[in-house]
Design a protein around this nucleic acid. Structure first.
Lengths: 219, 219
DNA sequence: TAGATTGTTAATCGATTAACAATC
DNA sequence: TAGATTGTTAATCGATTAACAATC
């Protein structure tokens, strides 16, 4: 029986654990205690132990955790042992940057295709793949069976094309648009990246910081 | 006395409110109730009223909220009435895509410069700006006084250059690296975008979905 | 065995939701 | 005035932290 309903907060910390454990491994650490890890990562030791225990007992009393074994286990939980075929929808500036910048192979994916409608872009090479016209989508998917897609197309295009993608077998979306896929579709997983919202949040923080300082001056 | 300590959860919802209210405004909505908004956005009406009331009383009993007035107020809270000068550090694939893809002016910023060390990139034009060599940073900042920076450089470069950026007057960072600025610096605001972690989370979700389905088959 | 550190339960804290009096 | 809907307090829910018995 797998422990069900892992909270989103826990899940979002997993990639971070995986990263830190990788660094520790590189630096020759063999074992680490939750306290030591807590100091390095800025979580509490309690939280770290709670988090790991959502998935099993990876440590040993009196000893701590074996760094590379723990990392391996978290990798398995994250599904990084697989290479899910993923396609890029929209090979403009952003899509191209994502395709070249992200290390798909160490994150459980393999980028196998890219699609666009702009004839200036079609035929161009991005890494090892060549940008295809979107009319080739069905044929390509039937042949190569990708199950994930990156949405780097305009919002209107996303709204129009998701039905098509789903009927092509796509069930995981890395979504850079503001189109809210979850409303219309279930049985599909979505990870949203709202870059604009992120920058807007920074504006808020900077604004707050400056107003605080102004208040301190006045008092 | 401003209500202090707005929770992070609330702040992260503000850009979303701002966006939705913009759409409503475009569609001719004059007033909206928290219940109506809750249906459109997928939050509870309670939460929406609580969120707004962190910052003041923007509604009217028996009527609801005036869409454009509410949007304006949230814009002010987010600091979108200003145009904070921001610079891009690292004009490679990702930096260039961010610079061209993001609508800085509607998010409280103005992109005024870009820096890199790669001579192939220096001198190139991105939108209205031209990529400069990083050696020109001090001179440029003295003259143009940016207070925010986008970190699209490698992590090692980020670790090395942040001291320099801070002494140039930068106090807001939109950070695309994994370097944890907050450890070393206070009095600085940071918004982290961990694209790799985001994709890794998608891998987890897809993995979970597939395991669930397998279990359902078996039973 | 003694010391260390986990796994896990209990206590606390914070965020979300429900309820309702105030009021337009 | 009556109906609607806010602003706000109280109740609930969930996540984090603290504590400690189990055990290596």
């Amino acid at each position: 029986m797998s422990k069900n309903a892992i909270s989103n907060s826990v899940i979002r910390r997993l990639p971070r654990y995986y990263r830190f454990l990788g660094e520790l491994e590189e630096n020759g650490y063999v074992r680490i205690s939750s306290r030591e890890l807590s100091e390095k990562m800025g979580f509490t030791a309690s939280q770290i132990r709670q988090d790991f225990n959502c998935f099993g007992e990876f440590g040993q009393q009196g000893y701590g955790y074996n760094v590379s074994e723990l990392r391996r286990q978290i990798g398995l939980i994250l599904g990084l042992d697989r290479k899910t075929p993923i396609i890029l929808m929209g090979a403009g500036n952003l899509g191209k940057a994502i395709a070249t910048h992200i290390d798909f192979n160490n994150r459980g994916f393999e980028l196998i295709g890219a699609f666009d409608i702009n004839s200036d872009i079609i035929g161009r090479q991005i890494g090892k793949i060549i940008v295809m016209h979107i009319s080739e989508l069905e044929y390509f998917c039937k042949k190569n069976k990708p199950t994930a897609a990156i949405l780097c197309i305009p919002q209107e295009a996303a709204e129009k094309e998701t039905d098509r993608l789903i009927s092509c077998g796509i069930r995981a979306f890395w979504n850079f648009t503001h189109y809210d896929l979850r409303i219309k579709y279930s049985d599909v997983v979505v990870e949203n990246v709202h870059l604009g919202d992120s920058l807007t949040t920074l504006s808020y923080s900077l604004n707050s910081l400056e107003q605080e300082e102004k208040q301190n001056e006045d008092s």
